[in-house]
Amino acid sequence: MSLDIFSQYLINCLMLGMIYAMVAVGFTLFFGVLDIIQFSHGDVLMVGGFTALVTYAGAQALGVANPWLQLALMVLIATALTAGLGVLVARYLVLPLKNAPPLNTLLITLMMGMVLREGVRLAYPNGSNPQPFPRLLPGGVWSVGGFEARIDSTILLLVGLALITGLHLLITRSKLGLAIRAVAQDGETARIMGINFNWIVLLTFGIGSGMAALGGVMNGLYYTEINFGVGLLLGVIGFAAAILGGLGNLYGAILGGFLFAALQTVGAVVLPMLSQHIPSSYKDVFAFAVVIALIAWRPTGLIAEKSTERA
């Protein structure tokens, strides 16, 4: 394999891993604070992507022509509105069911995902078909030796890295992060320490959903299109990544995201080399099969919590 082909695979793999990680951290944060799975999380991401698209159309209509300004508006509005959607889901769907069986939360969020998905498909003009996402980042290619990469992909990767680093600092260094970790480790004791439990849960859902919106915008910019069903696959992959890393573990979720992307890339590249009867489209079959095997092998995730730590 030549270096330029290799660099394409590598950048693509890192890009996918970044997007998956940004979805997976939401799953893991929500599970941390409330021990629940928010199954509409992928569709919340999709709503983020479409909000950015609508913002773009709005900016065009208002005569905002500078692509950086358009992008800034899209990111700000999509993140804010999607974070708000996450807060609403937490406030009106998840928190009221706090004392109900977890299965109810799972079901209600699953149905919420369906509402969001079908809602966008029907309400957005021609929403059943993929919508073009504007190309706003500078095109072109940079190269060092034989290694080359697109400038827009590189920018997206660096921004994704900055966002994940920012989230890490928020959780480990800030007072809000301290409260989120306290609620995740022992919600009742956190309340006894004077932490407003519900408020922290709502903020956590806001942060996780905002990250998903950013992932949705990155996904749109990278593929230059978005469709109403994008959240379904991204949601399942993000969930798988979070489980793979050990639910509740932030770094596990990030690792899981990149691992899944690596598996897909291996599936797309290596399998066709082994046999010409296996086309690269089998990459998801391969990746999910390996994840199933990994979870069977390590049921508590790759970064296992010691049982004593959860007691």
């Binding site: 009742e188 004791t189 730590e309 007691a311």
Partner: peptide, 24 residues
């Protein structure tokens, strides 16, 4: 309150546990 069974935050350092105590 010093709760029954101590209920410290196991995955936080001693200093972080104290910081949670002073949360407000």
């Amino acid at each position: 309150c010093i709760p029954e069974g101590r209920r410290i935050f196991p995955k936080m350092t001693v200093a972080e546990n104290l910081a949670v105590g002073a949360y407000q």
